[in-house]
Write a protein that binds this DNA or RNA. Structure first.
Length: 890
RNA sequence: AGGGACUUAGCUCAGUUGGUAGAGCGCCACCCUUACAAGGUGGAUGUCGUCGGUUCGAAUCCGGCAGUCCCUACCA
């Protein structure tokens, strides 16, 4: 074994080992209880970033943990075609080669996208493998796979027949660059510094005019009314009259509606039902004309008269100019407002009237709300429940058609003769209305989230009632970022309830987003996104995973830092070296047959600590508190096992009889064995690599072991001993005192020192006497005196109080060090203790405290203040003697 | 505009029923003591955003204020 763990040399072969043993395979039928997670399918837009690595680290930890706990686990991989996103990426890619999709035509273009999909999917899957994902690859699914597509069509048809999907001419969010409608969720609102224009609208029957306030003067071309508040005294006399539209002269009515805020602008609003969501409602309510002035590219169309062909911004400039010329512009002022932008292209969203398909949401939302309210599905962190419910309560119908090519084609056909619309899973024969057989399928595809909403059951074979579906649905937990709670999570819940009549998962764990070390969101456009492979190659997959698991806290965003990964790489190396020590120094073949009665105190102590760690790690994982569990293990390995247990054992083994040594070595081997298993879900590669080196584990796999729990290791309790635990704590405290004196007095670790221990009771004296050699070696002591009466001159002194035992540690400093240093040290210690003591005494002197506080707290404070008094007295005396340079009883 | 948070050591963050402030990294000092220098030992560092309230006692519970962030939302 090398003295450094070399992840790049072992990770690939370890992953291969797992695959060869089919360690990730889930069984459709099994007597074991099921545990299933569907991997949120990454988009085939490009490679995975650190956010995915975080997401998958959590899932893989759960999967391996549950597997080791005896569950029949399924972690199902897949990828998402990601309609708009992928189409945009591929179009950009083609653009570089001087191609565009119109040139290629639908079929050729789709071939290109499929080509892209194959490449990126390969890359994504290899990234997941590099990260160590225990995914059942035999079940990998793509959202456009035939089975999934059939299911998507079936769901569409079914919802259509139930009247939950309808087609209609509606005002939708239109993205000019995409030439497609997008859903409300895909619109991002940004604050924009615009202008508010006040424009004169002359009355037809008088010389008066109304002044309209608008941020979008160009849309006046599509105005079909002007609206005021019915109770607005300023304008009541105009209601019902007509005004002449500036520049184009069309006559429109003045109407009144309560929705108008008289305080805003002039209190007069132009109504453009075909280009504004508020105006659309007014248009429907008052039966106004809908005049569409934009084409699919968001240029002005034939209804714009002389402005035809202009872009929206050009048109705005021209119209403002023309209004000024005609003296119709009263005023323009700066105005900050929220404007919707396309989340994919960044273009300003134009509300546009167009024929689209919608899902009626209110009926589907109700049960989805109920299952979260009732706790059938739990959200972690719970803070999201409120957000989730609020969204469902205010849900609007979902526009699911997209004017794209990449995606699930909408299963609707239009009769070319009589325009009859036919929706079915297959193309129809004769038209039931007119008897002709001339059909054209709808050109549009479905919103990518439509198929994602079905993912938990389509991946398991639905609509067929497969064994997999029976076994693994509902899935156990969904792990995903909180950014897609509405896009995905909510819709899966609706569709699962609608089509499988059960929730898609029992628990949702929402984690934060990964940010860079400056705290900004990682994104490709900012060029700050990191390929996890780069990190893995530098530090290993385990270090990256542990970094996430040790640092993820209840849904908070995660600030990535390479230094921290490096820190956990060091931890993994520490583990590696501990294992190396055990494997090279321990000569027993297995840990079987540990003989309880002859165990040393350290052995008992480490076994007890192990038991406690097993208990607490299990609790942490049960509660999805990954960082708690990770830190527990980190400190157990580094501090308890390496710093103390191995160091104690090294010395202990020098002294004891061969059979006792063997017994003790079994304990060390056992603890290492358990550590490896405990850490496996967090850092699978290094643990498996070490496991493979355990001689008695030949032919086995770490991933297939039982996870150490207090149930599995219940016999550990037989080894517990409070006296042993006390002995270990006492030794630790004495050694720490000696090292502290050494460190603070700058006595070199190479310099051996004399130490005198004054003990105040026989029991402690006996214990310390038994560990004389231990103390001397670990404390680098040349002469050690242990006695009830210890005299010293020019000595550094420290007082330990532990339970009923008390020890004074004295280190003669003559010739070693400047006495002034020690006086400073003592003074500092005394001051600190006095400060604490003062606070405790103040508290204990309050009658209210003694009366109201928990008796345990009072007792604790009493004891603690007694300890402090003893310490202060010892130190104060020592300081005086040092000053007077005389021998004293320490 | 409504909602949800967050504010703790130089940095990133823990702190689960209120009871003497913690970790990792960084920093300082001394050490290549044969598992590990990707290491060892010791050390320093915080009016827990601010003001008030409840309490014997508040980082922790309640309220006001300030700052930061996120989500939802058609304000012309």
């Amino acid at each position: 074994m090398s003295d450094r763990y070399q992840p790049q040399e072992v990770e690939a072969s370890i992953y291969r080992l797992w695959e060869e043993h089919q360690a990730f395979k889930a069984l459709d039928v099994s007597t074991k209880p099921p545990f299933s997670i569907i991997l949120p399918p990454p988009n085939v837009t490009g490679f995975l970033h650190l956010g995915h690595a975080l997401n998958m680290s959590i899932q893989d930890c759960l999967i391996r943990w549950k597997k080791m706990n005896g569950f029949n686990v399924l972690w199902l991989p897949g990828t998402d075609h990601a309609g708009i996103a992928t189409q945009v990426v591929v179009e950009k890619h083609l653009q570089k080669m001087g191609l565009n999709r119109e040139q290629l035509g639908r079929e050729k273009f789709l071939e290109k996208v499929w080509e892209w999909k194959r490449e990126t999917e390969d890359r994504i899957y290899s990234q997941l493998k590099r990260l160590g994902g225990a995914l059942d690859w035999s079940r990998a699914t793509f959202t456009l796979d035939e089975g999934v597509s059939r299911a998507v069509t079936k769901v569409f048809v079914s919802l259509y027949r139930k009247g939950l999907i309808y087609r209609g001419l509606r005002l939708v969010n239109w993205s000019g660059p995409l030439q497609s409608a997008i859903s409300d969720l895909e619109v991002e609102f940004k604050e924009v510094k615009g202008r508010l224009y006040l424009i004169k609208y002359p009355l037809t029957d008088s010389n008066e005019h109304l002044i309209v306030a608008t941020t979008r003067p160009e849309t006046l071309l599509g105005d079909t009314a002007v609206c005021v508040h019915p109770k607005d005294d300023r304008y009541q006399r105009f209601i019902g009259k007509k005004v002449r539209l500036p520049l184009i002269g069309r006559e429109i009515s003045v109407i009144a509606d309560e929705s108008i805020d008289p305080q805003f602008g002039t209190g007069v609003v132009k109504v453009t039902p075909a280009h504004d969501f508020n105006d659309y409602k007014l248009g429907r309510k008052y039966n106004l004309d809908f005049i569409n002035i934009l084409d699919k590219m968001c240029y002005l169309n034939e209804n714009a008269g002389i402005y035809r062909g202009l872009s929206v911004t050009e048109a705005r400039r021209r119209i403002v100019h023309d209004l000024k010329e005609s003296d119709l512009l009263v005023k323009e002022e700066p105005h900050i407002h929220q404007v919707g932008h396309c989340s994919r292209t960044g273009a300003v969203i134009e509300p546009l009237l167009s024929e689209q398909w919608f899902v009626k949401m209110s009926g589907l939302a109700q049960p989805a709300r109920a299952v979260v309210e009732s706790g059938t599905i739990t959200l972690e962190p719970e803070a999201w429940i409120k957000t989730y419910l609020h969204w469902l309560n205010n849900i609007e119908d979902w526009c699911i058609s997209r004017q794209l090519w990449w995606g699930h084609r909408i299963p609707a056909w239009y009769c070319q003769v009589c325009s009859h619309v036919y929706v079915d899973e297959r193309q129809p024969g004769q038209c039931e209305k007119c008897g002709n057989n001339s059909w054209k399928q709808d050109e549009d595809v479905l919103d990518t989230w439509f198929s994602s909403a079905l993912w938990p059951f389509t991946t398991l074979g639905w609509p067929a009632q497969t064994e997999a579906l029976k076994t693994f649905y509902p899935t156990s937990v969904l792990v995903t970022g909180h950014d897609i709670l509405f896009f995905w999570v909510a819709r899966m819940i609706m569709m699962g309830l609608e089509f499988v009549k059960d929730v898609p998962f029992r628990k949702v764990y929402l984690h934060g987003l990964v940010r860079d070390d400056q705290g900004t969101k990682m994104s490709k456009s900012l060029d700050n996104s990191i390929d996890p492979i780069d990190v893995i190659e530098k530090y290993g997959a385990d270090a990256l995973r542990f970094n996430f698991l040790a640092h993820i806290h209840s849904g908070k965003d995660f600030q990535f830092s390479e230094e921290r990964v490096q820190g956990y790489r060091n931890f993994i190396n520490k583990l590696w070296n501990a294992a190396r020590f055990v494997l090279t120094r321990v000569s027993v073949a297995s840990f079987e047959g540990i003989h309880g009665p002859s165990l040393a105190a350290f052995d008992r102590w480490i076994l007890q600590r192990l038991w406690e760690v097993e208990r607490d790690v299990e609790q942490g994982l049960e509660q999805c508190r990954f960082s708690d569990a990770a830190h527990l293990l980190y400190h157990f390995v580094w501090n308890d096992f390496c710093d103390w247990y191995i160091e104690f054992s090294k010395v202990n083994w020098l002294e004891i009889a061969p059979d006792e040594k063997e017994n003790s070595q079994k304990v060390m081997l056992f603890v290492l064995d358990r550590i490896i298993a405990l850490l496996h879900p967090f850092i699978p590669f290094v643990t498996e690599e070490i496991f493979q080196k355990l001689p008695y584990r030949e032919g086995q796999l770490c991933i297939l072991q039982n996870y150490p729990t207090t149930r599995l290791d219940k016999e550990l309790k037989n080894f517990f001993s409070s006296e042993s635990a006390f002995e270990v704590e006492l030794l630790k405290a004495v050694l720490h005192s000696i090292r502290q004196i050494r460190g603070e007095n700058r006595i070199s670790p190479a310099q051996e020192i004399g130490v005198k221990l004054r003990v105040f009771d026989e029991k402690t004296q006996k214990i310390l006497g038994n560990y004389r050699k231990m103390l001397m070696l670990l404390g680098r002591i040349s002469s050690l005196e242990i006695s009830p009466e210890v005299r010293a001159k020019k000595a550094a002194v420290s007082r330990i109080v532990l339970g009923n035992s008390s020890v004074t540690v004295a280190v003669p400093l003559e010739g070693l060090v400047n006495i002034e240093e020690e006086i400073k040290r003592l003074t500092k210690a005394i001051e600190k203790a006095e400060k604490t003591l003062k606070e405790l005494e103040r508290r204990l002197s309050q009658e209210a405290f003694l009366k109201n506080a928990n008796p345990e707290v009072v007792e604790h404070d009493r004891q603690q203040s007694q300890v402090l008094r003893v310490q202060i007295q010892t130190w104060t005396e020592a300081r005086e003697r040092l000053l007077r340079n005389e021998e004293f009883l320490v």
